[in-house]
Design a protein around this nucleic acid. Structure first.
Length: 577
RNA sequence: GCCCUCGUAGCUCAGCAGGAUAGAGCGGCCGCCUCCUAAGCGGCAGGCCAGAGGUUCGAAUCCUCUCGAGGGCGCCA
């Protein structure tokens, strides 16, 4: 409907321009929904845009435009020129009925589209290495990535959710050694390092205490989960592993345990990955070598100080970077490039990487090198997400994996529930900091909690529909519902809001910004609850059967949109609360 | 020093392909259930949109600079 109006306005503008002999670029005429109700259902800024070109006052042009547009094939009830030259339009009532009819007919798929044309798109996120349980930063990224994936699916893309990990290298060795150290400590064969030395890098690291060696590595993993794993191993094998090297069974068991834990966590969040991509496979199938020689063939590689460098300055980037260390071992950069080449070769039109702010620096290098290697118009995109702080009262605690006090996703989900967790993690724009308000999230007075507010609105409406059934007011059967009784201003406003949903969903998908969805839903719920509350003026289930049926249809429309929105967020939509 | 992100109500944040009186939640104050879910609704208070310039019919939104917060600038990942 908005599209119809837009094309009517565009046509009118073109007509005026032609008359004046203008031959330049077309203007981007835009229809928007005005903030204020007094400004009609839709408004258009065309007259102001063109005024400069036509050298006449905008209001005058606006008048001329309105004459050309007329009723736009019976779409428009009334129109006016307002303010500096806005065109304001009021639509005919039956136009709104059409919107509602659409919603009821489409149900779950209302708001979805096929702009993606079933093209393949990939979202890579979380991608935490199995060195510890997921932190809140990972949790945020998990929810964000999953919501972006849901939005893209809704927009008609064929989406792959992917998790990239690296279970080799130094960090995994340190992990194994950390577990072994704790194991030896349990057996009384080693002494734990002093707290003070763990906290302060400048303090000396003791080799032994009370004749017991300190085995725990200086940069070891300090979390409690390490001791848990060591305890389990001890319970199962007793002293048998004393001679076992840290990077052997210890490393392996730790990795398996931790990875299983990570999968449990993502499962509990309702996130399902299609692909787990192991960095190691790039070594095994020769992709690393291939990538290196391909870069070399393009003259992008040189040797210096015994290392192999990427000429990234050629891409206009800050500096050149090492891809193979003098030890012969690749840096993270090379496999990362190889990985992205592999992604593009798998035929995705767009590859979206979610990355924490601490990885921002590397992305341009990976992108530039990969695009140099792969022809085609497919794209690599970055969605940056900043850190999470957990706030309670006046205390704000920054969450980092290093710190001993860091809270895991599992712990927070246990505290507030999945739905609240998901909403809170997704309701800020990705690139902004996120202050997780623990007090509000775990609010026992649920009236204050925004997650429950949305769900309650859904449940409340479902309840009304149940009551309608009970009273014999049914939408099914009895032919199409006559919607003409919906004539109140509030009702038009609700339908107009419902009509915005497809646009909001599309915009959120296109900008990779899921947070628009909760804001939209909150607004929708707001006007709907206001409507429901004023039961003295308009009850849904009243004496007039025809009016009641129409209003139940409105309720169902509301619940459909609310449900579709919640589903985009991966939240439950309860029928009862 | 250089780069990225962010500065909007007491707090946490929307709004930023420029648009008509700047929004929401939480917190504060005042009201509203013989009525389909009050897990709700209405109202009040609270703002030089960090600051200064510029671009134009029009700027919270675009450009430049300053200040402030966070992150990054390894042959770590």
């Amino acid at each position: 409907m908005k599209e119809l109006l837009e094309s009517a306005c565009t046509l009118a503008v073109e007509k005026l321009l032609r008359k004046s002999g203008y031959r330049g670029d077309p203007f981007d005429v835009r229809i928007e929904t005005p903030r204020s109700k007094g400004h009609g259902d839709f408004s258009c800024n065309a007259a102001m845009l063109v005024a400069n070109r036509l050298k006449s006052p905008p209001r005058e042009i606006a008048e001329q435009l309105l004459e050309v547009i007329g009723s736009a094939d019976g779409l428009i009830e009334r129109s006016e020129v307002a303010g500096p030259g806005f065109l304001n339009f009021w639509l005919k009532g039956n136009q709104w009925a059409k919107v509602l009819t659409d919603i009821l007919a489409l149900g779950d798929s209302y708001g979805s589209s096929n702009v993606g044309g079933k093209k393949k798109i990939q979202v890579e996120f979380v991608s935490a290495n199995p060195t510890g349980p997921l932190s809140l930063g990972h949790g945020r990224q998990g929810v964000l990535g999953d919501c972006i994936a849901r939005l893209l699916q809704f927009a008609g893309y064929q989406v792959t959710r992917e998790y990239y990990f690296n279970n080799g290298g130094r960090q995994m060795r340190v992990l194994g050694e950390s577990v072994k150290a704790r194991y030896l400590e349990i057996l009384g064969l080693a002494c734990p390092p002093p707290e003070s030395a763990l906290k302060d890098q400048d303090l000396p690291w003791p080799e032994s205490i009370d004749d017991l060696p300190v085995v725990f590595p200086r940069d070891g993993y300090q979390g409690n989960y390490i001791e848990d794993i060591a305890t389990t191993i001890h319970e199962e094998v007793g002293e048998k592993f004393i001679e076992e090297p840290g990077e052997g069974r210890f490393r392996q068991i730790a990795e398996e345990t931790i990875f299983a834990g990570i999968r449990d966590t993502t499962d509990s969040l309702g996130i399902v990955f299609d692909v787990y991509f192991n960095e190691k496979s790039l070594y095994e199938n020769g992709k690393i070598e291939e990538t290196l020689s391909a870069l070399s063939a393009l003259g992008l590689i040189y040797k210096k100080d015994g290392a192999t460098w990427l000429k990234s300055e050629q891409f206009g980037l800050e500096r050149d970077r090492v891809v193979v260390k003098s030890s012969g071992e690749p840096t993270y950069l090379l496999p990362d490039i190889a990985y992205h080449v592999d992604k593009l070769e798998r035929g995705f039109v767009t590859v979206i990487d979610l990355q924490g702010a601490d990885h921002i620096d590397q992305f341009p290098y990976v992108k530039a090198a990969t695009e140099a290697l792969v022809d085609g118009d497919n794209e690599i995109e970055l969605v940056l997400n900043q850190f999470v702080t957990l706030r309670s009262g006046d205390r704000s605690v920054k969450q980092s994996t290093r710190a001993a006090n860091f809270i895991t996703v599992d712990e927070l989900v246990a505290e507030v529930g999945v739905d609240v967790f998901r909403l809170f993690m997704v309701q800020r724009k990705p690139e902004g900091h996120l202050d997780f308000d623990l007090d509000l999230a775990s609010e026992t007075d649920w009236t204050k909690n925004p997650a429950y507010y949305l769900q309650y609105t859904y449940a409340r409406t479902a309840g009304i529909e149940r009551e309608a059934e009970k009273r014999g007011i049914s939408l099914s059967g009895g032919g199409p519902v006559d919607l003409t009784p919906l004539a109140l201003l509030e009702e038009m406003e609700i339908i107009r809001k419902l009509g915005e949903f497809p646009e909001v969903a599309l915009m959120a998908a296109g900008s990779r910004e899921p947070h628009h969805i909760p804001y939209y839903l909150r607004e929708l719920a707001g006007i709907w609850n206001t409507y429901l509350q004023d039961g003295k003026r308009h009850r849904i289930l009243g004496d007039d059967k025809e009016v009641s049926r129409a209003r139940v249809a409105l309720a169902k429309g509301l619940r459909t949109v609310m449900g579709n929105g919640l589903s985009l967020l991966g939240m439950n939509a309860p029928e009862k609360m």
